[in-house]
Design a protein around this nucleic acid. Structure first.
Length: 182
DNA sequence: CCCTGATTCGC
DNA sequence: GCGAATCAGG
């Protein structure tokens, strides 16, 4: 289905109300993707919704050329790492999420696995500690300790291909940490 | 990982 | 004009 008058109107309305592109896409339904919404928004020249005083000056980072397919090189390096013993604690949490302008409240109960790390989990025997020079493409680069002191070291456990941290630290690196700053 | 908008470019 | 793929960032 193309962009009919009605759909465009709804798009404008929702966009101005501050809904995200994905939310609008869901609202429009019918297989519309968030990319379709964003693309249309740009074509309609209505990117700026409600710019506060802080004129977000189109941070033109870098005018990207045309990034096509790129092959990623890989270097094989072996490293042995041991996983510490942690504890998986099951618990049920209730998360409320608001979707769409129609204030569609979705309350879902989901069982999550919360990893409770014992203090000792972060302790790694000296024999396994990895210094700056011990890091390679497959070692967790999670820093431990004060970088200014001699006993500073890195996690050094096995990290997934293409990831800077091991599975454990990977989530901590950036997991939606209740961001409510306004 | 989840998510956001921004941009490019083949269609 | 359209939007998937991609990029950059939170």
């Amino acid at each position: 289905m193309g962009w009919t008058e009605e759909r465009v109107e709804l798009l404008k309305k929702l966009w101005m109300e501050g809904l995200s592109a994905s939310q609008i896409a869901a609202e429009l339904g019918d297989g519309v993707t968030r990319n379709a919404v964003i693309g249309k928004v740009h074509r309609l020249k209505l990117s700026a919704r409600a710019k506060p005083a802080t004129t977000a000056p189109r941070a033109r980072t870098t005018a990207r050329p045309a990034p096509r397919r790129v092959a990623s090189p890989s270097v094989g390096v072996s490293h042995s790492g041991g996983m510490g013993g942690g504890m998986i604690k099951r618990q049920t949490v209730v998360r409320t999420q608001v979707v769409g302008a129609t204030a569609l409240a979705v309350t879902e109960e989901m069982e999550v696995e919360a990893y409770v790390a014992p203090a000792a989990e972060l302790f790694i025997p000296e024999s396994e500690r990895v210094g700056l020079l011990g890091l390679n493409e497959h070692t967790c680069k999670w820093p431990i300790g004060d970088p200014l002191t001699p006993d500073f070291y890195f996690c050094g456990r096995e990290s997934e291909e293409g990831h800077p941290y091991c599975n454990f630290h990977s989530r901590r690196a950036y997991h939606q940490v209740e961001k409510r700053k306004r």
